[in-house]
Amino acid sequence: MPNLYLRQTARRRWLTLIAALGLLVAGQLWLQLNDRQAFMGVWAGLAWLVHNFTPDAAAWHDLPTITYQLWRTIVIAIAATSVAAIVAVGLGLAGAATTGRIRWLRGGVRLFASVMRNFPFVAWALVLLFSFKQNDFTGFLALFLMTIGYLTRAFIETLEEVGGGAIEALEATGARYWPIVIQGVLPAAIGGLLSWVLYMIENNIRDATLVGMLTGTGIGFTFDLYFKSFRYPSAGLVVVTLIITTIAIELLATHLRQVLTH
């Protein structure tokens, strides 16, 4: 299930990128139709970007700072996802049709998950900034709140894949609720659950960068700082390390996921 979903997400990501580039070019063409100069401007802009953002010797000097901030961002993303995952298992069990014993709670959990999921994390970050000011905890909380919504929804579906028949068979042995959940339901679902957690960690490292820009923490803030102080080569180095890290983590996560689900 998650695998199919992931493949679709990857394809959607590429399609979005291509569509965005297409729109950009189309927009340029539409605004300055027949203006070859403007069209050339795109290339000139790109050339400027490449020229200015290529890390230089001074930028390499910033590498320790950058890797440290990147590390902090990764830790926050993993921490937020892990804590959210623990809460989401509880919510998932309460919300799944097969394991949720209280009808109004099932509905409540689903509603909660859907509200949390549809409230963008950028909005979370901005709201939380007011109450928690600029610090790591604000970023952690913003990611945590958004992840809870996603994971609860995904966990409900994963847990429901463990058939009601298998659960009923355990009930028929006279086993109680929690032994059934812990000895039966969770072992059956664990591969799928962890697979979702890995996927969220991967996503959250990317999102943490953006959250960091808003909450003034981690690698996002570092990028913002370099960018606003015109230290483009250093900002470029941030982008390069980010790209390398996210690709590495995506590869690692894909590998782990394969190990887990096979």
Binding site: L170, T173, G174, A175, W178
Partner: peptide
């Protein structure tokens, strides 16, 4: 599982 205490059941 049905013949076990709650804790023994949970711990398997």
């Amino acid at each position: 599982l049905g013949g076990k205490t709650w804790l023994a059941g949970i711990l398997g």
